[in-house]
Simulated scan of single mutants.
Amino acid sequence: MPSPKRDHLVGTAAALFQRDGFHATGIDTILAQAGVAKMTLYNHFKSKDELIVAALELEGARYIAWLRERADSLAEEPGERLLAIFDALEEWFEQEAFNGCVFMKAASEYSAQNNQIHAAAAAQKRAVFDYMLENAQSARLKDPRNLAQQLLLLHEGAIAVAHEFGAPIAARQAKRAASVIIDDAG
């Protein structure tokens, strides 16, 4: 059952994993930052892996809620929302706290596709794809599944480039490419 201590522990772990990575962040560091005892951890999670999955689920829910809220507030029409996703990305990339994508980091550090952590990271990417597909279908664009796949590639590429090169402009460049793809599907 969720509890305030569990939620605090997961939130603290999520922030540390985002900042420092998964393997580099030890349980003792998480417990010290959260101000909880080891027993609290093991009352809620059987392992560090389970804590990581919970942190990814929390961050995934936060990210998709934020992305939906931002894109929906920036554009009323579903086709316009597909482009507004990239405006939202640019806002994120320009934040001083931007440190790349925790889901990409998780998939990289736990690369086996059958690993529960990799699967949790992939689930978040599927949620972004689903939001794109939903808008592509609502806009009645041609081949919405293929379009959403292409837009997801641009989304992921923009995040990687913005992080690796410190280039928030990657979102604007991805938006221009998305515009061409969406126009072709119109």
Results as ranks from 00 to 15, higher is better:
94 E>D: 11
94 E>G: 10
95 Q>C: 08
95 Q>T: 14
96 E>Y: 13
96 E>S: 13
96 E>I: 07
96 E>W: 13
97 A>I: 06
97 A>Y: 11
97 A>Q: 08
97 A>T: 11
97 A>W: 09
98 F>K: 03
98 F>Q: 04
98 F>A: 07
98 F>L: 10
98 F>T: 08
98 F>H: 08
98 F>S: 01
99 N>H: 15
99 N>M: 02
99 N>K: 13
100 G>D: 09
100 G>A: 10
100 G>V: 15
100 G>H: 14
101 C>A: 12
101 C>E: 13
102 V>N: 06
102 V>R: 09
102 V>Q: 12
102 V>Y: 10
102 V>S: 09
103 F>I: 15
103 F>E: 15
103 F>Q: 15
104 M>G: 11
105 K>T: 15
105 K>C: 01
105 K>H: 00
105 K>G: 00
105 K>R: 10
105 K>I: 04
105 K>S: 03
106 A>D: 09
106 A>N: 11
106 A>H: 14
106 A>G: 14
107 A>Q: 06
107 A>Y: 01
107 A>P: 03
107 A>V: 07
107 A>F: 00
108 S>G: 15
110 Y>V: 11
110 Y>R: 14
110 Y>I: 08
110 Y>N: 13
111 S>P: 15
111 S>T: 07
111 S>Y: 12
111 S>I: 07
111 S>H: 10
112 A>P: 02
113 Q>N: 07
113 Q>S: 13
113 Q>H: 06
114 N>F: 07
114 N>M: 05
114 N>S: 12
115 N>C: 13
115 N>E: 08
116 Q>E: 12
116 Q>I: 08
116 Q>A: 14
117 I>F: 06
117 I>M: 03
117 I>E: 04
117 I>R: 04
117 I>N: 05
117 I>P: 11
118 H>Q: 05
119 A>W: 06
119 A>V: 01
119 A>H: 10
120 A>L: 09
120 A>H: 07
120 A>F: 07
121 A>R: 05
121 A>S: 14
121 A>L: 05
121 A>M: 03
121 A>D: 08
121 A>Q: 05
121 A>P: 07
122 A>E: 11
122 A>W: 02
123 A>E: 08
123 A>K: 09
123 A>F: 00
123 A>L: 09
124 Q>C: 11
124 Q>E: 15
124 Q>L: 05
125 K>V: 09
125 K>S: 11
126 R>H: 01
127 A>Y: 00
127 A>N: 06
127 A>D: 09
127 A>R: 03
127 A>I: 02
128 V>Y: 00
128 V>S: 05
128 V>I: 14
128 V>D: 02
129 F>A: 04
129 F>D: 04
129 F>R: 03
129 F>S: 01
130 D>C: 05
130 D>L: 07
130 D>K: 03
130 D>Y: 02
130 D>F: 04
130 D>E: 13
131 Y>G: 02
131 Y>P: 01
131 Y>I: 00
131 Y>H: 05
131 Y>E: 04
132 M>V: 03
132 M>W: 06
133 L>C: 01
133 L>S: 01
133 L>V: 00
133 L>G: 01
